[in-house]
Design a protein around this nucleic acid. Structure first.
Lengths: 120, 120
DNA sequence: CACGATACATCGTCTGTCGATGTATCTATC
DNA sequence: GATAGATACATCGACAGACGATGTATCGTG
């Protein structure tokens, strides 16, 4: 967990929704996916993850149902709702705006580093 | 203040340090600079700002001194310390890493947004 | 049978942000 | 000379998100 949690804070919900926008999934799998995609540099703690699920479900962004596994531990699957997709779209816009503003704020004052750009 | 504060959370200190790495400054001016650079889209509240100053000073990242204004309201100036510059450099690395990880996490699931819905 | 991995869940604590509130000085307008 | 707005600093309590600790239960392997 080399990444400070506060840098992710506020983006947890977006990351989860982004994953669910592809397919239904469950907590443990989502967490593994995050770890893998981040090259083991980011790991959401379980308390964080399940707290986010509760929030998102209360907000009507996701619904949940129990999987029908006949073997292994039971799984609670989550499915994104239309409201969730709308929230995700808005979150993506907000994130990109915030990201660019922060980049602008640090770039304005930081030229000691060579100042390479990252624009995609 | 269209930008959610939680998206900036954890980056406040970095933004302040980045500004101070250029020259000594004081609270009000830093806040104005942030508003201007962000195109009025981001405004740190005063409670947030002065809380950050207290944190940074306690951590040895900045020192403060009263300006010698003979006119107008008094100003408390802040100066970045060597430790502050080191913290800034680390914060910049952390931010860029976190930024790219988040981008990777949302891109993986949103790039081919054709709208199909996998039902497991 | 012990142990690690899988899988879900909650509680209390910590930390950062903000609304509300307060102080004081300078400038402009009436 | 009264009033208002901008400048400038500061604190308090409330709130929300992240996390460490802890707990449950099942499965595969040695």
């Amino acid at each position: 967990m080399s990444i400070a949690s506060d840098l992710i804070r506020g983006n947890t919900d977006m990351v989860i929704l982004a994953h669910l926008s592809k397919r239904d999934s469950y907590g443990y799998e989502i967490n593994k996916m995050i770890q893998e995609t981040s090259g083991q540099r980011l790991e959401l703690k379980e308390a964080t993850l399940y707290g986010a699920f509760r929030r998102l479900e209360e907000a009507g962004c996701i619904t949940s149902y129990w999987g029908d596994e006949t073997t292994g531990a039971r799984r609670r699957y989550y499915r994104i709702t239309p409201a969730g997709r709308a929230a995700l779209a808005q979150s993506l816009r907000d994130w990109k705006e915030a990201r660019d503003i922060i980049d602008a704020l640090i770039q304005k004052d930081t030229d000691t580093d060579g100042g390479e750009n990252h624009d995609r």
